Computed example of a mutant assay.
Amino acid sequence: MPTPIPSTPISPLRQRMIEDMNMRRFSQDTQRDYIRDVGRFATFLGRSPDTATAEDIRQFQVDQQESGVPVPTMNSIVSALRFLFTHTLDRPDLARRLVHIPFRQALHLEAF
């Protein structure tokens, strides 16, 4: 099912990401979550995510951790950004910079 057309214009990058997700038959819920998570990153940057550097990614993840973002949320953001960098932007070098926290490690960190 195609994504409904919003009443306000969207950026070409967001449109491309939506098209990439549609080609892979992502659910509407996954698409909504990925768009939200990439938006969170863009807000942190204060500019388009297609201008991000490896240091921007590192700083974002440090900020999220220091802000107390729960591990499942952090991992969801990592998935969204990996999709963006790998598929939409063809920047797998940046996707490799993202740190996914295994659930087992998350339990250990929370107990610490």
Rank of each mutant, 00 (worst) to 15 (best):
M1A: 12
M1V: 11
M1Y: 07
T3N: 12
T3E: 08
T3V: 10
P4D: 05
P4A: 03
I5M: 06
P6I: 06
P6D: 02
S7N: 11
T8Q: 14
P9F: 00
P9H: 04
I10D: 00
S11F: 01
P12A: 12
R14F: 08
R14I: 13
R16F: 00
R16E: 11
M17L: 10
M17P: 08
M17G: 03
I18L: 14
I18P: 03
I18E: 08
E19N: 14
E19M: 10
D20C: 11
D20S: 11
D20L: 05
M21R: 07
N22G: 09
M23P: 00
R24N: 01
S27C: 11
S27G: 07
S27L: 02
D29E: 14
T30M: 08
T30H: 04
R32L: 12
D33L: 12
Y34H: 05
D37E: 12
V38I: 15
F41K: 01
T43F: 02
S48T: 14
P49S: 01
P49W: 03
D50N: 13
D50M: 06
T51G: 10
T51M: 08
A52I: 01
A52Q: 01
T53P: 01
A54Q: 10
A54I: 10
E55S: 14
I57M: 07
R58Y: 02
Q59V: 05
Q59F: 06
F60G: 03
Q61P: 01
V62R: 09
D63F: 11
D63W: 11
Q64Y: 00
Q65K: 12
Q65Y: 11
E66H: 08
V69S: 10
V69W: 00
V69A: 12
P70Y: 05
P70K: 15
V71F: 04
P72K: 09
P72M: 04
M74Y: 04
M74P: 01
I77K: 04
V78E: 02
V78A: 13
V78K: 02
L81P: 09
R82I: 07
R82L: 04
R82N: 09
F83V: 09
L84K: 02
L84A: 10
H87R: 15
T88C: 09
L89V: 06
L89C: 13
D90F: 09
R91F: 05
D93Q: 09
D93R: 05
A95D: 07
A95P: 05
R96T: 13
R96G: 13
R97H: 12
R97Q: 15
R97C: 14
V99M: 09
H100P: 02
I101E: 03
F103C: 11
R104D: 14
Q105R: 15
A106I: 06
H108T: 15
L109G: 05
L109Q: 14
L109C: 01
E110M: 15
A111S: 13
F112H: 13
